[in-house]
């Protein structure tokens, strides 16, 4: 009640919050990360445009890891089970997360999927996000690293147009490099230059699931990350420093 003039109007009280709006998602993500870390599972958030080759990369990865590391995956899909079906056909235990109209996965969706996931012993768990270069970058899912698939046909300006996605990437896989000879004037260096402008300490591996180019380097990156798991525990995916300080409130 306003005591100034006795008008009876309610008093306006300011309440300082200083909290990330997605703090609820971040708590669910921390829970997922704890789940993965305590089991020694390397969790990756694989993002990229629709058709950038996310599923194809996993299909090509499965035979290279067979016998040494166990791979599992969930696949975010607006309406179908196609991607998870392709992954299962490639021998990867996989489930779909059907998002309906949602353009991204959030930590709670991944948490629910983990409850339904077969209790296989896993070394690497890939969360294949919904095809989209914007929204998925905003949501922490509990992964240890962000991998972004960018196909050469999308053009070298995409990192500049979607800087948030590439800012958060730990690794960019430049896919479909076998198509480069058909793209006039397109060179790998132009992708590298664009990435360096939005991604601190940029790391890019050109790959082709068609020719097999770069797949060994990608597998070496995975093995390196898995080796870190044994030596130092698992690290979190790249989170900009400003976000870290805001979460301290």
């Amino acid at each position: 009640m306003c005591l100034e003039c006795g008008c009876g109007d309610p008093e306006i009280v300011p309440v300082d919050v200083h909290e990330k709006i997605l703090a609820g998602n971040d708590r669910a993500a921390a829970h997922n990360r704890e789940h993965f870390t305590s089991r020694g599972i390397l969790a990756l958030n694989l993002m990229g445009s629709p058709g950038s080759g996310k599923t194809a990369i996993l299909e090509a990865t499965a035979p290279k890891l067979r016998g040494s590391f166990a791979l599992g995956a969930v696949s975010g899909d607006l309406a179908t089970d196609h991607d998870a079906e392709r992954l299962r056909a490639a021998g990867i235990p996989a489930l779909s997360i059907t998002t309906g109209s949602a353009c991204h996965l959030d930590a709670a969706m991944v948490h629910h999927a983990l409850h339904d996931f077969p209790r296989n012993k896993l070394d690497i768990f890939v969360i294949e996000n919904v095809g989209n270069l914007v929204c998925p970058a905003v949501y922490d899912l509990g992964q240890h690293a962000n991998v972004v698939a960018l196909s050469v046909t999308e053009g070298e300006d995409k990192p500049l147009k979607y800087p948030v996605m590439f800012l958060k990437a730990d690794l960019v896989l430049l896919t479909k490099t076998d198509l480069l000879p058909h793209l006039t004037g397109m060179r790998i260096e132009r992708f590298e230059e664009a990435l360096a402008r939005v991604m601190p300490a940029p790391k890019m591996i050109p790959v082709s699931t068609h020719s097999g180019e770069g797949l060994d380097e990608w597998i070496a990156w995975l093995r390196e990350r898995l080796a870190l798991r044994a030596e130092h525990g698992l690290h979190n995916a790249r989170q900009p420093h400003a976000a870290r300080s805001a979460s301290g409130h």
């Binding site: 300082d16 200083h18 805001a246």
Partner: peptide, 12 residues
Amino acid sequence: DEIVLERIEMEV
């Protein structure tokens, strides 16, 4: 990279 709720003014 902030997505932060700073303050709420509410009627008490």
